[in-house]
Every structure is written in structure tokens, then in C-alpha cells.
Design a protein around this nucleic acid. Sequence first.
DNA 1: CATATATAGTTGTCTAGACATCTATATATA
DNA 2: TATATATAGATGTCTAGACAACTATATATG
Lengths: 242, 242
Amino acid sequence: MFDRQSPVPMYYQIEQYIEQLIENKNLQAGDQIPSERELTDHFHVSRMTVRQAIMELVNAGILVRIKGKGTFVANHYKIEKNLLGLDGFSEDMIRRGMTPGSQILDFSRTLPSSNVSKHLGLKTSEEVFEIKRVRLANDEPIGIEISYLPVRVFPELTEKKADPSLYQYIEKECGLKIHHAEQSLEASLVTNEEAEILKIPNGSPLLLIERCSFLESGQPIEQTLSLFRADRYKFTITLPRG
Amino acid sequence: MFDRQSPVPMYYQIEQYIEQLIENKNLQAGDQIPSERELTDHFHVSRMTVRQAIMELVNAGILVRIKGKGTFVANHYKIEKNLLGLDGFSEDMIRRGMTPGSQILDFSRTLPSSNVSKHLGLKTSEEVFEIKRVRLANDEPIGIEISYLPVRVFPELTEKKADPSLYQYIEKECGLKIHHAEQSLEASLVTNEEAEILKIPNGSPLLLIERCSFLESGQPIEQTLSLFRADRYKFTITLPRG
DNA sequence: CATATATAGTTGTCTAGACATCTATATATA
DNA sequence: TATATATAGATGTCTAGACAACTATATATG
């Protein structure tokens, strides 16, 4: 179970051991974990090594230290860990327990609007791929998504690769790591064309989400406009205070 | 500047020193900070002490360590620090550069609906304060807010204390610390009554935000339903990936 | 009984090293 | 010239202690 010869550092092995105690419910929220001295004896490592393991779990919001008393399992460690989720559509639907689906309406290579080129930081002559899709949840239309990606960044992009999951293509196939996204949410009304695609009455409300994704370097690499049926889609999020 | 006799631990003094280098632009995003060895010599402390200072700044998203190369100022440390904001209405408006305002439509003490009592974890007989307000931005109506607070938790609440900032009352006057909130956002249409209050046409879209605030203990203490004019209010947020 | 005081156990801070691993550069070799 | 090899310098992991500060309990004292 614990291997001093392993390339996996001891502090990390201890970290995983404590996390497993919590997962297995051997330790529950509010419980005190073994003291640093006890862990030192158990694993035959120095106290600083034990402290490194505990420190990482504290930083992850899983443990809470109280000076003079001990170290305890945090009350809300799941919230801290699973705070929110910058998800693509497919991930989002799976998290909601639904089956995601997709139908491509349009895949083309064009010059972007000024709004899109501004968000993506492109020169006026730079082309983008535009992907317009109907998004399905359990085979029913739930929203329309229009995504824009710079051709320069994704020269190999094809219709097949882009669907169903753009995030998967970007992260798995291109090896790019999305760092964060800026999102805005607002309410709107369907146009006639959109109403027909989504099979809802004219004048129905829509939740309009605009998302721009960035790499760690700060370079924007994707913009997506999503139009969700208000009767089928609600955006939820847990926000920390302060 | 640096005091070994101070009760402020050395690692924290070093932490503040590095943070100030960044604030003063002596170090900019992407710059390499002095190596652990250099800081050890500079402050006459052991390397583990320097490492603790750096570790904390890394965990705060301010620094990035690269093995074999060095430690660098993160590109987006402001995003990490200022990720989002669980704001009350007043704070939100100020952040947007507008002047918040408020008109109370109703302040009463009632039995809550089943939806509210479920969210607040109340027994069927427990009363709540209900506060209904028109929210103004630069003196124009921008939304309607209906807040619910358990009487048991806030027995002293009055109309005056609740307005204009409920969060301020909870945190400053009651000394309770809001830990996080669960929020949902969806699109909707105004009712006739709401349209009149907000001075917008019938059938206009609204952004409907439901918020439930919790203490660190997990106890829910406040629920607020907000109805914002879609033409005046857009919800923005920066989400980290992974 | 109530109040100090000692004591044990916990986390907090810090030391002065050690060897490993990774990056980048300079140097020697084919 | 191109390819190995050595080297310097950086972070990564770890040790075996030390004393300080805080909490809670047990004990002695008034």
C-alpha cells in the first residue's frame, strides 16, 4: 500500500490515504483526523512530510486545521472541490443526468463579425470557423449554439472533429488546456427562425449565454453563443462569499 | 522592515514582501522572482521558511513554480483573486459603476411557501420575514427582489435595517459571515403586475435569479428571488476550468 | 466549591542540512 | 557540424529535531 521506493512521493501517498478515509466514510464531516504525531509514527516519515500532505488537503478545502485542537474534515469539502463547473454542453448535460445530442446546422470558414473578432483578439483579415448546432437533451431540442474558433489556432478543424464536443477536441486532440472562461447570461426572446428550430412558440423567452474561453497565457481561443429554451434550461452555480 | 522579534512569522513577512514587489510593478506578470537560495540569503532564514512563503502565494494563484526553471508571477493572478463575486444588489451595482437604489413595496412576517421553507430548512410552523423591493440603478427601476429570512435567526429585523443592503445588515450588524450561496438563473416573461412596476411592456423578457445563502456551518439563512429587466441587466462571471 | 496552576496533547514556526530531478548552458567528442 | 557529456542552478522531496502557542483536562490551592 505504501511504498517508499515508489516515485510517488510519500506526502502524496499520505494525502491519498486521508482522502480515501473520507471517501469510504471512515471519516465524516467534522471528524478529527489522526494527529500529526500519529501519522508520523504510522508512516515512519518526518513530521514535515505529514504536514505537507495535510497542508495540501487544507488548501483543497478538504481539511480544516485548528491550532491546539487538531485537524478536522471540512463541513463542505464537496462544495469547495466541485464549486462550479466550466463545462461544455456535453459535460453539462451529463452532469444533469441527461443524454446530450447535437445536429450541425452549419460549418463554415468566414470572416468574423466585429464583436467576435474583438473578443477573440483577431485582426480584421483573420478567418474563423463558425459552427452552428442544435443541441439536444434526451433527443429533444434544448438550445442553439454558435461557436467561433480562429483558423490560425485550429487549422485542422473539421465538421467531424468539432462535434459533438468542442472542448474535448480542444483539450484531448489539440492538447490545449482551457484555463478559464468569461461568461455572460441574459434573458431574451426567440426570433421566428429560432422558434422553428427549437419547436417553441413565437415570443418564448430564451436564456442567452455568451462564453469566451482562454488559455493560461490569456489568449482567447473560442467564443460560443448559446440560446437555451427557458422552459428546459436553468443555469445553476455555487458562489463563495468574500 | 523585517523583524525577527515580531510575532508576525517570517514566512508571512516574506510573503508580503513578494506581494508588494508585484503591486509596485517591480515584478510583472511572467517575471521570475528571486530563487529560493537568493531569498534564503537575503532574509537569513532557512530554505523551508522561504518555501512556505512561496507555497502560500502559489496556492493563492499569485505565483507559478516551474521545476528546474524557477518561480514566476502568474499571468492572471487578478482573475484568481477576484474570480467572481457573490454580491448583494448594492455591491453589484457599485461594481458596475452605477448608483443603487431601493423602494420597499412590502415588509411582512408570514408563513413561507413550501418552496421557501424547503430551501431554508424550516418547519411548517416557522415564520419568515418577507421583503419585497423595487431595485433601482441610477434612479431607474431595474428589477424586483423578494427576500425571505427566518424570524428565528433575525428576530430584530425591521424594515429600516433591511434596506438598502440586506447583506450589510447580516454581516455587519448581526456579525454572521455568509460563506457561500447557491444561485440559479433562468429566463422568463413579465407578468402584468411586474411590467407595471418595472415600467416595461407586457411580454418583455426577464432574467430570474434565485439565490440561497449559507453560513459556514451549512445553515441556510436567506433566500432571494430577483427579477431583472433583460434590457438593462446582464449577469457576468469568470469561471476557472478543471 | 471555585479558582489558579500544572500538564499533556495539539498545531505553528523554524533550522541546517541531504539527495533527487529537471532545465539550460557550456564543453568535449565523434 | 552535430551529438554526447559535464556542469551549474533551479525546484522537489525529506529528515530529525527544536521551541512557541493554543486547548483542554487534571490537580492543587484558597
